[in-house]
Amino acid sequence: MHYKVLGKSDLKVSTTSFGCKSLPATNPEESIQLLQQAFTNGINYFDTADLYDKGENEKLVGQAFRENRHQVIIATKVGNQWRTDGSGWDWNPRKEYILKAVEGSLQRLQTDYLDLYQLHGGTLDDPIDETIETFELLKQQGKIRNYGISSIRPNVIREYIKRSNIVSVMMQYSLLDRRPEETVLDLLQENQIGVVTRGSLAQGLLAGKPPKTYLGYSEQEVKKVIEAIQNLVTDNLSMADVAVQYVLHHPAVASTVLGIRTQTQLQEALYIPNAEALSNNNLNFLQQSLHPLLYEQHR
């Protein structure tokens, strides 16, 4: 397993990390065993959110690591408030709500601090300074060690770069979503803010699932990317290896979050960091297989 420091923080995170969202709560013992096995084999960064399964996901993570809490890096998220009738959630980045929500996350995770607390979205209409003030207060109180945002919106990311002490941004990034390459990745690198990626296998399309339309790409365009990846597959390099190694090639990227719910997915995630890095020629070959999309909104 390889590790990188996340931005300006003191968090040294595994370059592939465990996305906990898809863990089934119906079989908690199996899910907890999978989390523990990941840690034993070198994954130290676990990503969850209070939104996932109405907090049950955080409970699984808390149970898995209550005996070795200080050896793992737990990242969770805040900002989506469940309605009292359970029908859905509303966006709430206000101070009062965050201060209440963090207590719930700490309790469910069976810990007295969070390594990384992330705003789970964000818009320019938010009370951004109030949100930042709240995260800074939680740092002073020792309830969080660092904070970041989970966002794909360049205009929101720029505001947090200017106005806050975020150490990370979580964003979607893959060969089928290269929008961050236009400006955001380099900007974050310049400001020593780490990137944690999600969606790097594009719903499994870059790991063997049949092609279909994705974002602004047609099924035929997606097929061209898949074929380009397949051209680089060897006995020691799977499609998933190629897809994730592409994402990890940018120096701003510290870790890629992979959704893991089975033993097979875990074993693949454990192997990826040890796969051979892509050469510049291969990177160029992949990039030339399809034109990159650009952000149309929130620029």
Rank of each mutant, 00 (worst) to 15 (best):
Phe39Cys: 00
Ile157Leu: 10
Gly122Asp: 01
Tyr45Cys: 05
Thr234Leu: 08
Asn231Leu: 02
Lys212Ile: 12
Pro154Phe: 04
Thr16Asn: 10
Arg66Lys: 15
Cys20Val: 08
Val196Ser: 09
Arg108Ser: 06
Leu106Met: 06
Lys4Gly: 09
Leu60Gln: 03
Val167Arg: 04
Glu296Met: 11
Thr256Trp: 04
Leu286Tyr: 08
Asp235Lys: 14
Asn284Phe: 08
Leu188Glu: 07
Arg66Ser: 14
Gln36Lys: 15
Lys12Trp: 01
His250Cys: 11
Asp126Glu: 06
Lys77Arg: 12
Gln297Leu: 11
Ile226Val: 15
Asn44Ile: 03
Glu67Ser: 15
Tyr173Ile: 07
Asn27Thr: 15
Ile32Pro: 01
Ala64Gln: 06
Met1Ile: 13
Tyr173Phe: 15
Pro211Gln: 07
Gly7His: 11
Arg94Gln: 14
Gly55Asp: 10
Glu133Cys: 01
His70Thr: 14
Ile73Trp: 03
Cys20Glu: 02
Asn236Cys: 05
Gln36Asp: 08
Gln37Phe: 11
Gly42Arg: 06
Asn44Asp: 02
Tyr97Asp: 05
Asp90Glu: 15
Thr15Tyr: 11
Gln265Arg: 06
Ile128Glu: 02
Gly121Cys: 08
Val253Ile: 15
Thr131Arg: 02
Pro251Ile: 05
Pro180Asn: 09
Gly148Glu: 01
Thr234Glu: 07
Asp90Pro: 01
Gly204Val: 00
Tyr52Glu: 01
Leu6Met: 02
Tyr295Gln: 10
Val257Arg: 00
Lys4Gln: 13
Gly86Ile: 05
Ala243Gln: 03
Ser238Tyr: 09
Gln33Asp: 13
Ile73Gln: 01
Gln189Ile: 07
Asn282His: 12
Gln192Val: 08
Val72Ser: 02
Thr48Pro: 01
Lys162Leu: 15
Tyr173Lys: 05
Leu51Gln: 05
Ser200Arg: 02
Tyr271Pro: 00
Arg94Leu: 05
Thr131Ala: 11
Asp53Gly: 06
Gln172Val: 11
Leu60Lys: 08
Asn280Ala: 14
Val195Thr: 07
Arg153Gly: 01
Thr111Asn: 06
Lys21Ile: 09
Gly204His: 00
Leu116Val: 09
Thr262Ser: 12
Thr234Met: 04
Val257Ser: 06
Glu221Gln: 15
Ala254Glu: 04
Gly104Asn: 13
Thr234Trp: 09
Ser174Gly: 07
Gln107Ile: 04
Tyr246Asp: 00
Phe65Ala: 00
Asn191Ser: 13
Phe39Tyr: 12
Val225Ala: 10
Arg153Trp: 09
Pro154Cys: 10
Gln118Ile: 02
Pro211Phe: 01
Glu182Gln: 11
Val61Cys: 11
Arg158Ile: 03
Val196Gln: 14
Asn236His: 14
Asn80Ser: 12
Glu56Tyr: 09
Tyr113Glu: 08
His249Asp: 09
Phe65Met: 06
Gly104Leu: 04
Glu268Lys: 10
